[in-house]
Nucleic acid binder design. Structure first.
Lengths: 336, 336
DNA sequence: CAATTTTGGGTTATCGATAACTCCAAAATA
DNA sequence: TATTTTGGAGTTATCGATAACCCAAAATTG
């Protein structure tokens, strides 16, 4: 690969002059500037960002860590983050933890050794604390996305999990349901806890008893076990509606119900958090609390860049809460 | 950030000794090795991969460029590529061109300046040739994914576009359809051309006249224009079936038909290339030619790594063609 | 026991770029 | 004409890590 030295030699100037032309710094006569630029083109020069980063002590690379690259919520978020990063002259390194702490840790090691300027971090759960402390130790700025981590102050962009859950469950209650199950993500994820709170609150306000048997914590990643609902279905007083704490859980639930020959919404109503991307475009079926995923990415990136470029007070932490939108579709219907 | 020099000083050895401990090279006594490791932990040392890359002349970073991060085909592919990269000790830089040559070019510039060791490249289309020539000029190894580029020899992993299309159209013909429309991607994408060929071939073999009026080249990205099908629907002899050249086109078509109150498959049958991710899990509706997306990623990564590590003859180019699977679901039905 | 290996580790140069400083000649000013 | 500016560069050190070379002390050998 050609370096500034190759160019310097061919253009009969010093390397420093080439560097000045590249960065538009210092004083360079129009003649030599032109000459250097010509030689740069001839030799197909591309600056080596490793070398540059080494001396500048910054990379202009940001990192986005999501927990599931196949989930439309995160891919849409990623697109927002990417657009926003590009606009600000940053590159984006995308990582995927698959809701797995070990993968997350690997990724953080990678981030540290790459010396990225900052990280947009969607934590796998509460135990992500270790990884985040690592980032703090090394003074890598980060912004949390979608999920909060106890004991950790930070800028963050969250959804209104509790309120969204409350509204979804309210909707089910208004349809006449009183036996409403909650299929939740793992309880070490903040959103799962909040969605449970919203669920419980809605029930209590409506005077419906909260039945532990109807609450099933699983995982936000796709549930492939077709028997997973059996404990619920075998109850003497089985649920007539299900609130799935995210889109993938809802898909798993639908598959399980289909395997049992139970029809939605005729026999059981379902509603979930997060919209389903093209699935909803293809067939607007699922009643959801849709989050503004693209905005999550854009705003998170904005907070991060402001933080990096020192435009904000490092002491104060900002917490953006984005509302979700209740989209009532066909997966929920009145109790017969 | 702590460097090997900080460690060297505190451990009372030279920087080189620290480097040797890190890389497990040279001869180090067990005592000093332990001591150095202890100091490394105390100081939270993480190697600076910029500095290392600079001297080693390789980054251990690979890049994956896809054309649509919200398309399940590509996200599944990405997961395959990522898993495979990680297994081989490489990091993955993910990029998204949005089917846009300008974004693609930006991304290639970024790749060049980051000096990645290799690229998995899903080209936006034939004009990606410029970008690929850039990579060649700078001797960055790459493997093409999903799409071929004329005039360019390279390792690649492709689907069987022609055969897959032929089988989908055959299926429609067997159902009795003779007026079958093709809604295609842009004609400067190899898969679009091949899918057209497969379509034409299937019709010809069945003795059905090929009607140019039924062939509509659009874009592989989501089609949002609800009027887009009007020219077809207003024909005196409108189509009774539609072959959509990819999943997003099919979604656009479905939306357009829904807006017109036309029901699928009762009034019009639809089949498309590429499965729809969770959309199909949620509601297995669309008849598709499903490609092994994860395998695209894994195999592409494998070819790339073999190429980088010089395990293959650089002269010969390998072309893997992965078959697709015809999944007959509910969007297609017999002509009445 | 002297000669030779081996062990364990240090020195120096280098990767490609930039910051900070220096330097000189021509132009501007006194 | 003498002196100061200033425009237009060049020199050197540096970022953090590793390759290549070097060297003393300890261990082995005949």
């Amino acid at each position: 690969m050609t370096t500034i030295y190759d160019i310097a030699k061919k253009a009969n100037v010093s390397a420093m002059t080439v560097s000045r032309v590249i960065n538009n710094t210092g004083r360079i006569s129009e003649a030599t500037r032109k000459n250097v630029k010509k030689v740069m083109e001839e030799l197909n020069y591309v600056p080596n960002s490793m070398a540059r980063s080494l001396v500048l002590q910054k990379t202009k690379i940001l990192s986005l860590l999501i927990t599931d690259i196949t989930n439309p919520f995160y891919t849409t978020l990623a697109r927002g983050a990417e657009d926003s990063a590009k606009q600000n002259g940053y590159k984006l390194l995308l990582g995927n933890s698959d809701e797995d702490y070990a993968k997350e840790k690997d990724y953080v090691d990678m981030i540290l050794s790459t010396r990225v300027d900052g990280v947009l971090f969607a934590p796998a759960g509460d135990h992500s604390l270790d990884q985040l402390r690592q980032l703090q130790t090394h003074q890598i700025p980060f912004v949390l996305l979608d999920r909060e981590v106890p004991e950790l102050a930070s800028d963050m962009v969250l959804g209104d999990s509790k309120e969204g859950a409350r509204r979804l469950v309210d909707h089910l209650i208004e349809l006449g349901h009183r036996r409403i199950a909650l299929i939740n993500g793992s309880m070490d994820v903040s959103t799962a806890r909040l969605r449970e709170q919203g669920y419980v609150e809605a029930l209590k306000l409506a005077g419906i008893p909260v039945d532990e048997e109807l609450m099933l914590p699983l995982s936000y990643r796709s549930v492939d076990d077709l028997q997973v609902l059996d404990p619920l279905l075998q109850l003497s007083d089985p649920p007539t509606a299900i609130f799935a704490a995210n889109n993938f859980i809802a898909v798993g639930v639908i598959k399980a119900l289909r395997a049992k020959g139970i029809s939605v919404p005729e026999e059981i109503s379902i509603a979930c958090f997060d919209d389903l991307g093209i699935a909803s475009e293809l067939h607007p079926f699922m009643t959801v609390a849709a989050q503004p995923a693209y905005q999550f990415g854009v705003l998170g990136m904005q907070l991060l860049i402001e933080k990096i470029e020192g435009k904000t007070d490092p002491q104060t932490h900002r917490k953006l809460i984005l509302p979700s939108e209740l989209l009532i579709r066909q997966s929920t219907s009145a109790l017969k």
